[in-house]
């Protein structure tokens, strides 16, 4: 059996990845503290409950990323000849599914509270001999839960684009978009203080819708990756032009008459095949080896492209029916 060669990041990308790992550790600690603070102030508010669940789930992407980073130096072996890069995609899929399901659960829960006209209870708490309204503590906790992720999200996005990491990138986009749900929860608590019983459950429902959509978006990304969809740049929704660039690179080689390339995404890296029609068979294997080296060095995200010489591009290798 032929096992793939291990993938090594270029030195500058390795440094960028080191920064991203440190950033994700900070992110994990900050998120963990937010989860704790919200838990301590949650009470029986639906908006707080929804925010809390959202924050608990926001722990999953950094954990998935950091666990995947543990395995990134593991070389492909006989059991897994294509390597372990896709572990991160599986982690990504799991967080997407849990986000989607939890959003649905929270939505049903919030709407049922609205329908039953349940009145939210936010009482007082006695701290150092003074009894204060819990709502004020909840607001403070929500502000704490909203602003740090916004700032972290900005840095995460930049760092994730640098090393083409989907898990962190979608996490960053979510954290940046979550200030709206934070605001919804704050409005919900302020509304309860005004004596509007529906404000809390309504805010909870809005947050639940947001969580569900986040899950759906991540789910589409993860399924796309696992289905070997055309690669996309992390920052863009459009397919990457890399395949076309590789084709024109091949066509410019003197021994190549025609060429087609197909690529797939494997976690952080791309792999694929190039079908080449040689203009002559002279030194064919030497030419192919040189071209393969050139293709694999073209972009740092390319892990392995296999070159296949074919008599013409219409030829199919599938068994005849």
């Amino acid at each position: 059996m032929r096992v793939r060669q291990g993938y090594r990041l270029p030195a500058d990308k390795e440094r960028a990845l080191g920064r991203l790992i440190r950033l994700e550790w900070i992110n994990l600690w900050v998120r963990g503290s937010i989860v704790l603070v919200l838990f301590l102030t949650m009470g029986s508010s639906q908006a707080m409950k929804a925010s809390w669940y959202e924050d608990v789930l926001s722990l999953l992407p950094p954990i998935a990323f950091l666990v995947a980073m543990r395995f990134r130096h593991r070389e492909p072996d006989v059991e897994y000849p294509y390597g372990y890069q896709r572990a991160s995609v599986i982690a990504f899929l799991v967080s997407a599914v849990s986000l989607f399901l939890l959003g649905g659960y929270l939505l049903v829960d919030s709407v049922s509270k609205l329908v039953m006209a349940e009145h939210p209870i936010i009482g007082g708490i006695t701290l150092f001999g003074h009894t204060v309204w819990m709502g004020w503590l909840m607001l403070a906790a929500l502000i704490y839960g909203t602003i740090p992720p916004l700032i972290l999200g900005y840095y995460q996005e930049k760092a994730a684009i640098a090393v083409h990491d989907k898990t962190v990138f979608s996490d960053a986009k979510m954290s940046k978009a979550n200030w709206l749900t934070g605001l919804a929860a704050i409005a919900g608590i302020l509304g309860v203080g005004m004596g509007w019983w529906w404000a809390d459950a309504l805010a909870g429902a809005l947050i639940a819708v947001d969580v569900t959509f986040d899950g759906l978006k991540m789910l589409r990304e993860a399924v796309g990756d696992l289905m070997d969809r055309r690669p996309r740049f992390t920052a863009k929704a459009r397919p990457s032009p890399l395949g076309g660039e590789l084709e024109s690179l091949l066509r410019r080689m003197p021994w190549v008459a025609a060429a087609q390339v197909r690529l797939r995404e494997e976690g952080h890296v791309f792999g694929g095949e190039a079908f080449v029609v040689p203009s002559s068979d002279d030194n064919l294997t030497g030419n192919i080896a040189a071209a393969a080296r050139q293709l694999n060095a073209y972009d740092w995200r390319i892990h392995e492209i296999v070159i296949m010489p074919v008599p013409d591009l219409e030829q199919s290798f599938a068994p005849r029916p």
């Binding site: 009145h119 936010i122 007082g124 019983w197």
Partner: peptide, 16 residues
């Protein structure tokens, strides 16, 4: 009663 948060806060202050 649930939802009577001003009343809840007043009673709690009194008892604590």
């Amino acid at each position: 009663p649930p939802g009577e948060n001003a009343w809840l806060l007043r009673v709690q202050k009194h008892f604590s």
